[in-house]
Design a protein around this nucleic acid. Structure first.
Length: 586
RNA sequence: GCGCCCGUAGCUCAGCUGGAUAGAGUACAGCCCUCCGAAGGCUGUGGUCGGGGGUUCGAAUCUCUCCGGGCGCACCA
């Protein structure tokens, strides 16, 4: 409908050009908006206001000329000039009834589109370091990322969901060493646990398992472990130096192979847990991409080579630097440290190069907002490699601050004080958690009140939407209990009986679903879908209270049943897209 | 200090890429089940859209500048 009106206006513009009212070179950007107020019709165009200056007339006069030049169309019953020069369009309400048939025919397909057809898009999200379980902060990235991916798929893109596993680097060494130290405790060795090590209970659990299976195989005397280790922060030393020394000591005392056991067991354990967690949260990936693999197969070295060949690398202070300041970053960055190890950034350059090489038309990285300073350097790297950096889209997800009532909950993976995603799911359930996370714009700082979310009260809006779905199901059950049968065709033939105001509103809202979905997808804004669903549910509940569906009159009854079944279908489609259940009773 | 995000009803947030009288939820005050589920509906109270300039027919939306909050600014990842 929207597009149809745009067509008509375009024709009117062409006519005015021929008449000389408008200059030939004008190519108007025609936008049709849905009106907020029914008095203004169904759609409105502000074109006359926009072109008045160029046409050197006042907007109302131009609008009148446009209206006069507008071709006739059967589905438009009235065109009106309003306000400073808006052109309002009134749609024949009977045209709206079509949507019920359409929803019925298309079922689960209703609302899907093909605007993204033929385009491959990669969405990388969560990608939390496998050094501990996912917490509620990661949950937002997971819910948002998967919703964005699912929306893009719904509008026709070929979507590849990926998790980048940081299974290399110092953080993983700290983890391996943390596990080993806990293991030594299990063995009875007395070693003060470093302040900078991972303190979470899961570390102890993993260590306990290793001890159970391997007994004292990895045991080394505490004196040897601590010999000449610089003091920890608590003793007035530097915590980083302390932990680094312990890592080196672990590698020496255990030897590469045994040390690797801790590394690998830790990784497998935690990554395995993350995979289960995400899967249960309704988040599935096509690929888990290993950072270590990039290092092992030479991709990192190759990427650096390419940068070097292009003249973007230089040596200074024993390290290798990438000259990204010239390419938009605020300063140059180290890619190979003085000790010969490449940095995380170097891996990431190789990773993004790899993404581009895989032929995606669009690469979407979803990061926590604390990584925003990282964007310019990645873009600089792509530019340096001669890649089309417009293919990269970075979406930032702001932090979710946790509250328990008034009290803010502090979180740190290192300290082990955090609420895990799993705990959250167990408390509020997958549906509420997903809904809550995606309800807000991603750039919006979010206050996640555990007390509120965990209180199973009706304050949680997910129940409201699910209840609308369950209510339709309930009506259908009541129909059955009364011994009546639904007559689909009779209902379709009598859709014109749906003339109540509530019914007209619902029809309009249902019609809007496909365009809303497309917008939400192309703008990466799943919260628009949530808003829509809440609105649809609200209109349904209002309708429900105002009118009886199961009336004696069969023609009206079946027409209304067709309408509410269409509502049920759209609710199911929308919630289904968000991986939220649609209960038939609750 | 520099950079990114955010300031809209008491609280949590929408606001369709500059449009017509700024909207929901919640809280508060009332009302609605002999009738398809009251996890619902209806009515009301509640706003100088953080402050101030600017751009124009028109600004919550764009721009500048202050103020306030969050987060970054490593040879960590």
């Amino acid at each position: 409908m929207k597009k149809k009106i745009e067509e008509l206006i375009l024709q009117a513009v062409e006519t005015l050009k021929v008449d000389g009212v408008l200059a030939q070179e004008i190519t108007p950007n025609i936008t049709i908006d849905r009106t907020r107020d029914a008095q203004h019709g169904d759609f409105a165009s502000n074109l006359a206001l926009m072109l008045a200056k160029q046409a050197k007339t006042n907007p109302r006069q131009l609008a009148e000329k446009l209206m006069a030049a507008l071709p006739e169309d059967a589905s438009i019953i009235k065109v009106e000039l309003a306000g400073p020069g808006f052109i309002n369009f009134f749609i024949d309400p009977t045209a709206q009834f079509q949507v019920i048939k359409q929803i019925h025919d298309q079922g689960r397909e209703f609302g899907l589109s093909q605007v993204g057809a033929g385009k491959k898009v990669q969405v990388e999200f969560v990608s939390a370091n496998p050094t501990g379980p996912l917490h509620v902060g990661h949950g937002r990235g997971a819910a948002y990322g998967s919703a964005v991916a699912d929306l893009l798929e719904a509008v026709g893109f070929e979507v590849h969901r990926e998790y980048y596993v940081n299974d290399a680097g110092r953080q993983m060494d700290i983890l391996a060493t943390s596990i080993w130290l806990r293991y030594l405790e299990e063995c009875g060795e007395v070693v003060r646990f470093p302040s900078n090590a991972y303190r979470g209970d899961y570390v102890r659990e993993i260590a306990g398992d290793i001890h159970k299976n391997a007994n004292n195989e990895y045991r080394r005397p505490a004196e040897l472990v601590l010999e000449n280790i610089p003091p920890d922060e608590a003793e007035g030393g530097d915590k980083e130096e302390h932990i680094d020394a312990l890592i080196s000591r672990a590698k020496i005392l255990l030897g590469p192979s045994l040390y690797q056991d801790f590394f690998q067991i830790g990784l497998n354990n935690i990554l395995g847990d993350i995979k289960i967690d995400l899967s249960e949260f309704g988040v599935d990936y096509q690929q888990w991409f290993s950072e270590r693999q990039l290092m092992d197969d030479g991709s990192v070295a190759q990427a650096l080579e390419r940068l070097r060949d292009a003249g973007h690398l230089y040596q200074q202070d024993g390290a290798t630097w990438f000259a990204c300041a010239k390419l938009g970053d605020e300063k140059d960055r180290v890619v190979v440290r003085e000790n010969g190890q490449s940095t995380y950034f170097a891996s990431d350059i190789a990773y993004h190069m790899n993404k581009l090489d895989r032929g995606f038309d669009l690469i979407i990285d979803i990061w926590g907002a604390d990584h925003h300073g990282y964007i310019p350097r990645v873009r600089a790297a792509l530019a340096a490699l001669g890649a089309d950096e417009s293919k990269l889209k970075v979406l930032l997800v702001q932090f979710a601050s946790l509250y328990r009532g008034e009290e803010k909950v502090s979180m740190s993976t290192r300290s082990g004080e955090f609420v895990t995603l799993r705990q959250l799911r167990n408390e509020v359930g997958k549906d509420a958690a997903r809904f809550f996370y995606v309800m807000r714009r991603s750039e919006q700082h979010m206050d996640f009140d555990l007390k509120l979310a965990t209180s199973k009260s009706n304050e949680n809006p997910v129940f409201y939407v699910q209840y609308a779905h369950a209510r339709v199901c309930s009506v259908l059950r009541q129909l059955d209990e009364k011994g009546w049968e639904r007559n689909l065709l009779l209902g379709m033939d009598n859709l014109t009986l749906l003339t109540e105001e509530h019914e007209t509103h619902l029809l309009g809202t249902l019609t809007r679903y496909p365009e809303m979905l497309e917008r939400a997808a192309l703008q990466y804004e799943p919260h628009q879908l949530i808003q829509y669903l809440r609105e649809l549910a609200n209109e349904f509940h209002t309708y429900y209270n105002a009118h009886q569906f199961l009336v004696e009159e069969v023609s009206i009854r079946n027409a209304r049943l067709n309408l509410i079944c269409a509502v049920k279908q759209v609710l199911a489609n929308g919630l289904g897209l968000l991986n939220i259940n649609t209960p038939e009773a609750m």
